[in-house]
Amino acid sequence: DNLVIALHSYEPSHDGDLGFEKGEQLRILEQSGEWWKAQSLTTGQEGFIPFNFVAKA
């Protein structure tokens, strides 16, 4: 599955970004460039995340 774990917390800075906490698990929905579309397994919310803040779970 496309699961990743957050290496750092991220505060959203643009509409459509997904904020998350360090250690949170996310499911990657789309990989494109440096911003990936993801869904939080904690909150169920979707949005874009910086790819370098996460690692394969």
Rank of each mutant, 00 (worst) to 15 (best):
1 D>N: 11
2 N>Y: 14
2 N>E: 10
2 N>I: 14
2 N>F: 15
3 L>S: 03
4 V>R: 05
4 V>I: 05
5 I>N: 03
5 I>C: 08
6 A>W: 02
6 A>T: 07
7 L>A: 04
8 H>M: 14
8 H>L: 12
9 S>L: 04
9 S>D: 10
10 Y>S: 02
10 Y>Q: 03
10 Y>V: 05
11 E>S: 13
11 E>R: 13
12 P>R: 07
13 S>W: 12
13 S>D: 09
13 S>Y: 12
13 S>K: 15
13 S>F: 12
13 S>M: 15
13 S>N: 11
14 H>Q: 12
14 H>S: 11
14 H>D: 09
14 H>P: 02
15 D>Q: 12
15 D>I: 12
15 D>C: 14
15 D>P: 15
15 D>G: 09
15 D>K: 12
15 D>H: 12
16 G>R: 08
16 G>V: 06
18 L>T: 01
19 G>D: 02
20 F>E: 01
20 F>G: 00
20 F>A: 01
20 F>C: 04
20 F>Q: 00
21 E>K: 14
21 E>C: 14
21 E>A: 13
21 E>F: 11
23 G>M: 03
23 G>H: 05
23 G>L: 02
23 G>A: 03
24 E>N: 03
24 E>H: 05
24 E>K: 01
24 E>W: 03
24 E>Y: 02
25 Q>C: 15
25 Q>I: 15
25 Q>W: 15
25 Q>F: 15
26 L>W: 01
26 L>P: 01
26 L>T: 00
27 R>T: 05
27 R>S: 04
27 R>L: 14
27 R>P: 00
27 R>G: 00
28 I>A: 00
28 I>N: 00
28 I>E: 00
29 L>E: 00
29 L>V: 08
29 L>I: 11
30 E>G: 08
30 E>W: 10
31 Q>D: 10
31 Q>Y: 14
31 Q>S: 12
32 S>G: 11
32 S>N: 14
32 S>Y: 13
33 G>I: 03
33 G>T: 04
34 E>L: 13
34 E>I: 13
34 E>M: 13
35 W>N: 06
35 W>P: 01
35 W>A: 04
35 W>V: 08
35 W>C: 13
36 W>V: 10
36 W>N: 01
36 W>D: 01
37 K>F: 15
37 K>Q: 06
37 K>M: 12
37 K>E: 03
37 K>G: 02
37 K>R: 14
37 K>L: 15
38 A>R: 00
38 A>H: 01
39 Q>A: 08
40 S>E: 01
40 S>P: 00
40 S>D: 02
40 S>K: 09
40 S>H: 07
41 L>F: 04
41 L>W: 02
42 T>E: 10
42 T>Y: 08
42 T>K: 15
43 T>G: 03
43 T>Y: 01
44 G>Q: 07
46 E>R: 08
46 E>A: 09
47 G>T: 01
47 G>N: 00
47 G>R: 00
47 G>I: 03
48 F>N: 09
49 I>L: 04
49 I>M: 01
51 F>Q: 13
52 N>D: 14
52 N>Y: 13
52 N>K: 07
52 N>V: 06
53 F>E: 07
53 F>G: 05
54 V>E: 05
54 V>W: 03
54 V>G: 03
54 V>R: 00
54 V>F: 07
54 V>A: 04
55 A>Y: 10
55 A>C: 14
55 A>W: 07
56 K>V: 13
56 K>W: 14
57 A>R: 07
57 A>K: 09
57 A>H: 11
